[in-house]
Amino acid sequence: MRIIIYFLISLWLIFLGVILGDYGPWYFAWLVGTVMIVLISAAGGALMDTQLEEEQQHK
């Protein structure tokens, strides 16, 4: 269920990207996007350890 919501959200993002981007400043977008993706991915990893520790404390 959640997956479908996420999927719809991502489709919406793509749609927004399409609307906004005719001749976008793509090089700049790449720079920002890459930094963002790397940080999100890294944060996701760090978050996992926090989640794990919390869980261990519960037990």
Binding site: S10, I14, G17, D22, I37
Partner: peptide, 18 residues
């Protein structure tokens, strides 16, 4: 990898349209 991938694949489709 999955987080990295989700945002990338959204980007790739958007840019494909561009």
């Amino acid at each position: 990898g999955a987080l990295f991938g989700v945002f990338s694949v959204i980007g790739v489709i958007t840019l494909g349209d561009a």
